[in-house]
Amino acid sequence: MFKQLIRSTVFAAAALVSALPACSAHAAGHPAFNVKVTGAGAPVILIPGLASPGEVWDGTVQRFCVTRQCHVLTLAGFAGTPAIEAPLLPAVEQQLSAYIAENRMDHPVLIGHSMGAFLALKMAADHPEQVGRVVVVDTLPALGARQTPNITAEQLEAMAAQMRDRFLQTDNAAFAAQQRRTAGTMVTCEADVERVVGWSLKSDRRTMATAMYQMLADDLRPSLARIKAPTLVLGGVASFKAFMPRGDVEAMYRSQYQNLSGVKIELADSARHFIMYDDADWMYARIGQFLN
Rank of each mutant, 00 (worst) to 15 (best):
A242L: 08
L260K: 06
F175C: 01
K122V: 07
M163Y: 05
I6Y: 04
S114R: 02
M283P: 01
M123D: 05
S223Y: 10
S255I: 00
V35G: 02
K202V: 00
V61R: 09
I265S: 08
G132E: 05
V263D: 04
R166M: 04
N259D: 11
F290H: 07
F64L: 14
R181V: 01
R272A: 12
A91D: 02
G184M: 06
C70G: 15
G39C: 05
A15G: 15
L143A: 11
D269I: 03
A28K: 10
I151R: 11
A209R: 05
A251Y: 04
P245I: 08
K122T: 08
P43V: 03
F118G: 04
D138V: 08
D204P: 07
V193F: 09
V249M: 00
A51P: 01
A280M: 04
W199Y: 13
R180K: 14
Q289I: 02
A209F: 12
L5T: 14
F243R: 11
N103W: 10
F243M: 06
D278K: 03
A27N: 01
Q147L: 10
A238W: 11
A32G: 07
R221H: 08
L20E: 15
L73T: 12
D248W: 04
R68G: 05
A13T: 14
S52Q: 15
L291T: 11
Q69S: 13
R181A: 07
F167H: 13
S114C: 05
T60E: 04
Q169R: 05
Y277V: 01
H30Y: 01
L234F: 07
L267A: 00
A79M: 10
G116P: 02
L89M: 13
F243K: 06
T60H: 06
R221Q: 14
L110I: 05
P230S: 09
